[in-house]
């Protein structure tokens, strides 16, 4: 058996024993997410527009991650709506930045791997870099939105008469606690996945100026900063959506 197969099996056993049926649905969610990511890559290779493929798959990926989580209906639909709004804001930030910094494609550090490969393949790699930045932020946005929406939903279920304004205030406080640690998840993920690149820079004595302007490094940095901005934005946007929905619900009553 291959290593990847055994890892999937061990993960299945662990997730079922810890999470029961919820564990199974999270596990299936992960498998399906991988399937969607792989299909997206193949579609891009078939010359479908990377940006459109990414937007469509992002919406599917967000709905799977958010609706298959354990959150209540109110929390997950608010979280999903908030995640969509943030996705749009991020696209508006990423498109000009990527076109300005032009981090698409490959850098000098990739030369070894590119040996023998044709790079003139007629696919817009700047657009692929936009997809990379959007997709790598999706998980973090979904996680933060679910956490904040669930926290607020808990408050609503305990004090059903709470005023929307008070809810917004509480949400900001809950959000601050959650985001403080969520930011670490992102940064360690980034440090870990760029460890080899940093060692390369040190080994070849790159100066700070060279590192900041380096295509590969700038690309990774932009992706992580965008995810970071997305995560911070989940606090006001999720709380705002929850308070508006609460306001509407109380008006109906």
């Amino acid at each position: 058996m291959g290593t990847i197969t055994v890892l999937w099996l061990v993960l299945l056993i662990l997730m079922v024993s810890v999470g029961g049926s919820q564990g199974i649905s999270s596990y299936l969610g992960l498998l399906i997410n991988f399937g969607i990511l792989f299909i997206s890559v193949v579609l891009m290779a078939f010359h479908f527009s990377p940006i459109i493929v990414t937007l469509v798959s992002s919406i599917i990926l967000l709905s799977i991650t958010i609706f298959w989580s354990n959150a209540s209906d109110n929390a997950s639909s608010s979280a999903f709506f908030a995640a969509l709004v943030i996705l749009l804001i991020l696209v508006a930030i990423i498109l000009p930045i990527e076109n300005w910094a032009k981090v698409g494609g490959f850098g000098l550090e990739d030369s070894d791997e590119l040996e023998g490969l044709s790079t003139l393949v007629g696919i817009d790699f700047t657009a692929v870099a936009v997809s990379t930045a959007i997709l790598s932020s999706l998980g973090a946005i979904a996680e933060a939105a679910i956490a904040i929406a669930s926290g607020l939903d808990e408050i609503i279920s305990q004090h059903s008469a709470i005023l929307p304004k008070q809810l917004f205030f509480d949400g900001t406080i809950i959000g601050r606690q959650i985001i403080g640690t969520a930011v670490n998840t992102l940064f360690f993920g980034f440090f870990g996945s760029s460890l080899a690149l940093f060692m390369w820079f040190k080994g070849l004595n790159y100066s700070l100026g060279t590192i900041i302007n380096d295509k590969v490094f700038a690309g990774e940095l932009i992706a992580i900063m965008v995810a970071f901005i997305g995560v911070v934005l989940t606090i006001p946007i999720t709380t705002l959506i929850m308070s508006i929905r609460l306001h509407n619900k109380q008006k109906v009553k």
């Binding site: 193949v42 692929v128 790598s136």
Partner: peptide, 29 residues
């Protein structure tokens, strides 16, 4: 149980998305 699923996805997307460009290039070659 309720936080592990979304959290696993955070890292999954970070680790997988950065492989996109090279995978496309391999497919096109």
């Amino acid at each position: 149980r309720s936080i592990m699923g979304p959290l696993i996805n955070v890292l999954f997307f970070i680790f997988m998305a950065e492989t996109f460009a090279m995978t496309i290039l391999f497919l096109k070659n």
